[in-house]
Structures are given as C-alpha cells and as structure tokens.
C-alpha cells in the first residue's frame, strides 16, 4: 500500500506517453496528454498526504487539527484550471492543422510537410 500511489502515478505517466507515441489522431493525442498530466496530480497529492489528517481547511475545526500539506494542493488547484485553457489552445492547433492538411494523423502531417 505504501508504494501504490506512486506506482499509479508512474503508470498514468507511462500510459499517457504510450498513447501519445502511438496516436493516430491529434484529438486523441490531446486527451492522452491530459492523462499524462494527471499523473503529476496523483504524485503530488501522494507526497503531501498524511494518514489520519484532514483537509487544510479550518472553517469548523480548531487550529492544530492534523492536516495534510496545503502547498502541493495550491500547486494543483491552479494547474487544473490552467490546463483547461491549454487544452483549448492545443485543440485549436489541431483544428488549424486539419484545415490546412485535411488530416489529423501526426505521421501523415509530417509526410505532407516533407
């Protein structure tokens, strides 16, 4: 159990990378990238976790209650929202590529470019 979260994180990374390497479609590639990115989320949260601790919110509990690390959470929280707009940027690249080359296959695009 103590290694499981880390194993899951590296599994997500490798699976996402495999999807990117073997992708035949840019949209599919962007989604694989989203999965690859989620490996960092799992990894960072696993680093900051503490058994038996609560979330770092002291709205209804006294200060001093054991809580998990807030720093990694702050890193992730912004990243997830920013990821959405970055995905939009990548998708607009894909749309543009399709308009210019009539294909979404990365290999064919490379062939067309020469």
């Amino acid at each position: 159990m103590s290694l499981l979260p880390y194993i899951v994180a590296v599994w997500l990374f490798l699976v996402g990378l495999y999807g990117i390497v073997t992708s035949r479609n840019f949209i599919h590639l962007v989604m694989c990238l989203a999965i690859l990115q989620s490996s960092t989320y799992v990894f960072l949260l696993a680093v900051g976790y503490r058994i038996g601790a609560g979330p770092p919110v002291f709205a209804n509990v006294p200060v001093g209650t054991p809580a998990v690390d807030p720093v990694v959470q702050a890193l992730l929280l912004t990243d997830i929202v920013v990821e959405a707009t970055v995905v939009a940027l990548l998708l607009s690249f894909a749309v543009q590529v399709h308009r210019n080359t009539a294909t979404l296959d990365p290999e064919k695009v490379v062939e067309l470019e020469g």
Binding site: M1, S2, L3, L4, P5, Y6, A46, V47, G48, Y49, R50, I51, A53, P56, A67, V68, D69, P70, V71
Partner: peptide, 12 residues
C-alpha cells in the same frame, strides 16, 4: 522518499 501517508516536510 518518505512512505505514503508520512508527510514530514516542515512547510505544510
């Protein structure tokens, strides 16, 4: 690394 569930960094 510290095992899962045993966070020991000081900042948090």
């Amino acid at each position: 690394m510290p095992t899962f569930g045993h966070y020991r960094g000081p900042y948090g």
